[in-house]
Design a protein around this nucleic acid. Sequence first.
RNA 1: GGGGCGGUAGCUCAAUUGGUUAGAGUCCCGGCCUGUCGAGCCGGUGGUUGCGGGUUCGAGUCCCGUCCGCCUCGCCA
Length: 558
Amino acid sequence: MFIDIRDRTGLTQAVFDQEDCDSEVMELARSLRREDVVQITGGVEPRAGGTNPKLDTGEIEVRGTALTVFSRSNNPPILPDDNEAAKMAEEVRLRHRYIDLRRPTMQRTLQMRHDLMALTREYFYNLGFLEIETPLLIKSTPEGARDFVVPSRIYPGKWYALPQSPQIFKQILMIAGCDRYIQICKCLRDEDPRADRQAEFTQIDLELSFVDRDEVIKIMTGFIRRVFKQLLDLDLGQIPKVPWQLAIDKWGVDRPDMRFELHLQDISEVAAKTDFKVFQSALAKDRGVVKAIRIPNSAKALTRKVLDQLQDTAKLHGAGGLPWTKVTEDGFEGGIAKFIDCIAEELSAALGVEPGDTILMSCDEWLTACESLGQVRLHAARHLELIDTTAWKALWVVDFPMFKWNADKQRWLAEHHPFTAPIPEDIDKLESDPGSVVSAGYDMVLNGSEIGGGSIRIHDSEVQNTVFRVLGLEEEDMRVKFGFLLDALSQGAPPHGGVAFGLDRLVMLLMCTDNIRDVIAFPKTQSGADLMTEAPGPIDQEQLNELQIHCVEQVAAE
RNA sequence: GGGGCGGUAGCUCAAUUGGUUAGAGUCCCGGCCUGUCGAGCCGGUGGUUGCGGGUUCGAGUCCCGUCCGCCUCGCCA
């Protein structure tokens, strides 16, 4: 009579034999069913009937002499089995989360998440950081994501917001003389979730006084290297700083995946020598460029169908199309070959092509051309399996532009957030030429995923006012919404800066999953529902009355 | 808010041009066997085909609406 017993550390076999225990125990053991909760008393011994190499505990077994049944389980709707779970609809796993979490992988993930949090606190506490909590019920601030909102009972018609991040509070803590702050905190943004994004997520949030960009980067580099060394026994090595402009130029994204090559190259000069209208009209644009990537030995793999899919990718990201050609012994063939034959030699030399290569191109205004081809680069690499999945490539992206122009709203938006400082030499240009101002922000990127970012903040209320003005916030509006911050800044504010790391995404990387729900004990679905508790749910009329909230439209169902 | 894919037994799936009583594996229950560990053999329970309409002699299948899940664009300072 064999029984697999499982706890959070793993699986062990127990055996009940008439030679070891009386018939009552035998009978009770025989009555055991899946997921019953038991206590087994007995000796640990080498297995009598041969070992099982597939189990960590395959060489031993517990020979039961006594048995207590703490609790019986109904027949479980799903099994806590990693292989089963891989095939199962995620919906049913989320509905029965208490069973799904029993799976070995889930237990390991929860352990990993805990280890990361413990390590984080230890690392920063040792550097003199203070863990300080900030409020959950706060004032709604403009800009940024949509706020989750909580009605006030005491002030009918007024609302709290839940924090999108503790940003302003941690800056105020610096002004309050707290020097070094850390918090592992929940952040809430009422935006549609994604595979790697939840409305409710966890941040490793910190802020330091009297630092410059490179000091923050140094501390965080030490942190992330420690994380991977301690949790995965992996040395990330030196972490290079890449200016934003170079990142876009070379990889076509502000979070480059450096685990594979396929760099974007600028072929504007050569392309200008053709009569190809598509190139010519792109080059005629302000900052118009022609970019190309060379994909070695891909002529066969990149079939017409695949190229069409890549073209869809390019179009989705703003390009008009995806000019391409293949390289043969006899020159270019297919795609736009006939338009660029005239520059075949020059272009081949510039790109260093060889027969069997495919050349993919984009042409447009610089940012669009780079970004669309950057996405093509990613998709092509995935399709051709060029990504070294055992590699770990981290970098810092620095020198972001301070603002980006939003054509729809016809105004400047903060690239990072409105409290980010410009680099000192660009302060004069804030109002005269906002588009050229470089910010003191920094993002850490690991394997093409942004895992953290931050900036040196503005610690001068005049500069802060100027930035608000550039962002088109009215003077009066500023007073109402950020008056307390401006007041604080004018009461002696130290230079300060900080960073926030996405805890969930870090655990995703550590556990090698691309599903954020796998690293959160009780996650929500893509429509923000908790399938286990069925939140969000209705509330009593009495509660509504108390809050003086009247629902205009009753929900039809029920 | 837009696009794509999906929803049939507890779970994973099948079901011909619309056609008999919606099947299989697994799980579960019972029996036999058994130092088993992906056990084996025999038998059994289990279904409002997500929901609501419509077309039809007849709908899992076709049409309309709706709900839910996943991926994705917008969005995510």
